[in-house]
Computed example of a mutant assay.
Amino acid sequence: MVVPPSNAPAHCPGPETESAGKADACEGCPNQNICSTTPKTADPALPLINDRMANVKRKILILSGKGGVGKSTFSSQLAFALSRDSDVQVGLCDVDITGPSQPKIMGLEGEPVHQSNTGWSPIYIEDNLAVMSIGFLLPSTDDAVIWRGPKKNGLIKQFLKDVEWGSLDYLLFDTPPGTSDEHLSVVQYLKDSRVDGAIVITTPQEVALADVRKEVNFCKKVGVKVLGVVENMNGFVCRKCGTETKVFAATTGGARRMCEEFGVPFLGSIPLDPRIVECCDRGVSFLDEVPDSPATHAYHEIIKKLQEIPAFSHE
């Protein structure tokens, strides 16, 4: 399912029509490329995707309107936290095709992807935590992925239909910033098997919140439930003197105020802690390495709130 953006032309032919992306009215539309390349007939891969996803209880998107707000970091720490329960099976799918971060953050750089007659095998950190990313398929970590939309969409389709995810309680999708081809592809390919919800990551300043508002509107347009908003980098607490500094000022009330305006849940704020960066660079769980940090406590409170939401709970 492709949804016309809010600024689509007045005479939009509709994303499901044969003239989608090709009509005169489509010139200049931000969705012109994906509308013109999306198959207008039933995609033969959809039944295969539905079969793979039949054993996945919860499919959760991690979104951000702007880059650099800590979306990939939150995705990784959420995956680590959920997998601490050995009875919970977790998958993390990195669909940020041109900027894959998860191999580094999860400590899996250089790991090869194995293929069998049942498909690609994701890379396992623990018996109950699996990761898939284009980063595992590149010859070098410095290689640039210079792809247009159709090729990105094709790889995302492969991640869904060809990866042997097995039975999962959670499949988390670390998406790129914004609302682009990757987001539309995931929603389209999971149309029948259903996306259970989205977690939106932001920072307190208005320049980030302005893009998050677009992200929330995107979710409403494509029918994805917003499970809640997380405000990252909310202040820095000095470990020596205890002084708190607001690094990014919440000039318009921050994420909490924005959530009140849009009627979506506010999950909580996470303060800055330099050790988060250190743990991500080393590829280890910050929550396990620094259990006494205020940021760790904030993560646990947010995850506790998420687990109280029926659309998120794996029970």
Rank of each mutant, 00 (worst) to 15 (best):
F74G: 04
N217Y: 13
L209G: 03
D94E: 09
M106W: 08
S193M: 09
N128V: 15
A208V: 00
T38M: 12
K221R: 14
K161N: 13
G149N: 08
Q102C: 08
S121I: 11
S293P: 14
I62H: 03
S101P: 04
M1A: 13
P13M: 14
P39W: 00
A79M: 05
G110Q: 03
E261K: 04
G135V: 00
T38G: 10
T38Y: 09
S64N: 00
S75L: 04
C12M: 02
G135W: 00
T251R: 09
V88L: 09
G91K: 02
I156P: 01
T17F: 11
G235C: 06
M258C: 01
G283T: 15
I105E: 05
V131F: 08
E16Y: 13
K225Q: 08
L184K: 13
T203I: 00
K225T: 15
E27F: 08
V2A: 15
V290G: 06
V277S: 15
V95H: 07
T41C: 13
F286Q: 11
S86D: 13
L171P: 03
R275K: 12
P5Y: 11
D273M: 03
T296D: 02
E109A: 03
K246F: 13
Q89P: 02
G268R: 09
F312Q: 11
D273C: 07
L92T: 08
F80K: 01
A298D: 05
C26L: 01
Q89D: 12
V163K: 05
V3S: 15
P265E: 14
K246H: 11
H297A: 12
T41F: 08
I199M: 13
E289F: 03
V277R: 15
V3A: 12
V284D: 00
V200T: 09
T118G: 14
E109F: 09
V113N: 04
D87P: 07
A255V: 01
R239W: 10
P177C: 02
W165C: 01
S6F: 15
A23D: 11
P177D: 08
K304P: 10
A20D: 04
L171D: 05
D87A: 05
E182K: 05
F136H: 06
K304W: 14
E244D: 14
R148D: 08
D174V: 06
V56F: 02
E231Y: 01
P294W: 01
G242P: 10
A45G: 06
P13L: 11
D281W: 01
E182D: 02
S116Q: 06
S133P: 05
G65I: 03
Q205W: 04
N7A: 12
R256D: 15
P204S: 01
G135I: 00
E18L: 14
L267A: 10
I270G: 09
G68T: 04
K220V: 11
S6A: 15
R52S: 05
V247S: 06
K214I: 02
D281L: 03
Q32E: 11
T118I: 12
S133Y: 01
K240C: 13
N232G: 02
K221E: 09
T243C: 15
K161W: 08
T73V: 07
A311G: 13
I303T: 00
V247G: 07
E289Y: 07
P150M: 08
L61Y: 08
P44E: 01
G223I: 07
N128D: 03
T37M: 10
W147K: 12
G149S: 06
V195C: 09
L82C: 02
C279P: 10
